[in-house]
Simulated assay, not measured.
Amino acid sequence: MRFALSGEQEQFSHSLNDLLSDVDTDSANRAWAEGDPGPGLKIWRRLAELGVTALAVPEKYDGLGATPVDLAVGFERLGYHCAPGPWTDTVAALPSLLDDELLTSVASGETLASVAYAPHVPYALDSDVADARLAVENGRLRAFTPGALLSSVDGSRRLFPPVAGDDLGTALDADRAFELGCLATAAQLLGAGRWLLDTSVAYAAQRKQYGREIGGYQAVKHLLADVATALTLAEPLLFGAAVTLDRRDVSAAKVACGDAAHLAARTGLQVHGAIGYTAEHALGLRLTRVRALVGAWGTPRFHRERVLS
């Protein structure tokens, strides 16, 4: 069986790439980490105009009713450009949790959501700026308020312990919401890994040691080739999981994309050398984002156990 993205999906990816290439996501991430969501929300609204926030929302709520494959396409680009904000919670998970008019404002980009999903998503992402806050417990929904801000390896992913509030009833499809959250996280990891590879290749072509570009050395070529191979092998697992949405397939994709992105991060730091450690370099934002996403929506151990179960 041969799988390929449709022309519309390819165009959607290109449109996202063009938009995000024209905005400063790095500055928006740094501002978001400091508690200033303004620049990030401007990017959110621009992406909403492109239909990103409406992807998984049903058509009856002015959404696009898109497939999980469409979600994977979009989130791969969000991961590549390191877009700040609770994208997974709002766009991937929330539409499967409830059947409510609230989704109309989600589709338009007016409402941001923060979702806690015990035990695998114990802390709520960006709930200080979210308009809708939902905790999933044993298939039921609860409202929550955010506790004190926690320390995070990725400062632009602001995490809060959820303080349980009113019971809101049974979730529409809690299992599907979780699988879509995992899938979206895997897609972001794949995108982040691709950015790290592209940036490392470009840097290796210009950085010189002993009178020649380091990209010309066999050892560096092998490092970068290993990353390219890992990302290439992870991609079909991601889109295969998007087609089936089977729990084992989703977990396999999450593990593969996480491993590939982690390899890309480690290799990127080796290629960049000391400059990669500086807070000013864009590499650092992706390194911390990868570290955070590897454990988000289920740890690697949890997902490996699901694959083997």
Rank of each mutant, 00 (worst) to 15 (best):
A187N: 03
A187R: 02
Q188A: 14
Q188P: 11
Q188Y: 13
L189G: 07
L189H: 08
L189Q: 08
L190A: 12
G191F: 02
A192S: 07
G193Y: 04
G193E: 06
R194Y: 00
W195K: 10
W195I: 01
W195T: 01
L196C: 10
L197Q: 02
D198I: 03
D198L: 07
D198E: 13
T199E: 14
T199H: 09
S200L: 01
S200E: 07
S200C: 01
S200H: 02
S200M: 02
S200W: 00
A202P: 04
A202G: 07
A202F: 01
A202K: 01
Q206S: 12
Q206M: 05
Q206W: 05
Q206R: 03
R207N: 03
K208R: 14
K208T: 14
Q209L: 10
Q209I: 05
G211I: 00
R212S: 10
R212Q: 11
R212L: 06
R212I: 11
E213L: 07
E213S: 07
E213H: 09
E213M: 05
I214H: 12
I214C: 15
G215D: 04
G215T: 00
G215V: 00
Y217L: 13
A219K: 09
A219T: 10
A219L: 13
V220H: 13
K221A: 06
K221T: 03
L223Y: 11
L223N: 13
L223D: 15
L223C: 08
L224P: 11
L224N: 14
A225D: 14
A225R: 08
D226M: 09
V227S: 10
A228D: 15
A228P: 02
A230T: 09
L231F: 04
T232P: 00
L233I: 10
L233T: 13
A234E: 08
A234V: 08
E235P: 02
E235Q: 05
E235M: 05
L237R: 13
L237Q: 12
L237P: 04
L238S: 12
F239S: 15
F239W: 08
F239A: 14
G240A: 08
G240N: 10
G240V: 06
G240W: 05
A241K: 02
A241F: 01
A241P: 00
A241T: 02
A241D: 09
A242M: 08
V243P: 06
V243K: 14
V243Q: 10
V243R: 15
D246T: 11
D246V: 04
R247T: 03
R247E: 13
